[in-house]
Design a protein around this nucleic acid. Sequence first.
DNA 1: CTACTTTAATCAGAGGATCTGACTAAAACA
DNA 2: TGTTTTAGTCAGATCCTCTGATTAAAGTAG
Lengths: 139, 139
Amino acid sequence: MNIGLLLFIPNRYVENRMLAAVVNAGFEVTQAQARVLMRVGPQGSRLTELAEAAQVTKQTAGFLVDQLEQAGYLERVPDPSDGRARLVRVTRKAMAAVPIANEEMARMEEEWEQHIGKRRMTQLREALEMLGEITDPYR
Amino acid sequence: MNIGLLLFIPNRYVENRMLAAVVNAGFEVTQAQARVLMRVGPQGSRLTELAEAAQVTKQTAGFLVDQLEQAGYLERVPDPSDGRARLVRVTRKAMAAVPIANEEMARMEEEWEQHIGKRRMTQLREALEMLGEITDPYR
DNA sequence: CTACTTTAATCAGAGGATCTGACTAAAACA
DNA sequence: TGTTTTAGTCAGATCCTCTGATTAAAGTAG
């Protein structure tokens, strides 16, 4: 079985479960919005950075940030160090979603470890981290 | 680093490279079309099967098959065993893309093995296959 | 055999996500 | 100062995906 598909299946599973957990807790976000939201840094991020991190164009990132801003999950403030730029920041409202997502992630990892064993889980992580070195366009 | 993201990065990389290889060889397909196309079985598949395998609704699958049919990559023939159903089959034109995709995949896997080593590659595969058992909704 | 239920596929309509190209304004640089 | 780069936005188009309703064939229970 092709390794692309092998990677795709658990990846889709994680995305679905994370989103479901957050939506279930009352946060109304879509998959695409969530991908942007989770990439906003603690001190705020520029739109261009978000676009790169989420692998979309600036326009798409802007479109999604607009929606998240309107929903009250993000805010834009002027960037003091650059008059052209603005910093996108996570609001308190959105921060409440972070522990929910983290807990769901932890739960999932535990289930996985239960199924494939601690040793294989460590090996999986190691292999994926190394693959990131050659497949992640942003580093 | 969260395992969802760790899975996402190489997965995206595979999808991008596979699509690029095929497109580069003159096949004009999109990512979504490719996902459906690669799931058509050798004896043809029903639309409903394709929808399940590609994780989309029947309507979406139908929409994509329409496009692929129009482009000459797929054809629909009546299913002799069921008057309601039709079989979607890959045309000769599209079959020419298969070796191209396979070669690109093989090339990628070789590069990965080069980077992380044969042992880790085997472990990766094994762990992913086991994870599929609990994360693949279609089995 | 008839009536009900399920299944395969399509039609209609809508919303979401993404892109390319063109533009404005601020910053960096020569 | 004048040119080039960078951050972000506007406009328009396309692609992908969904929900809901419909048609027709197949399966099933009496």
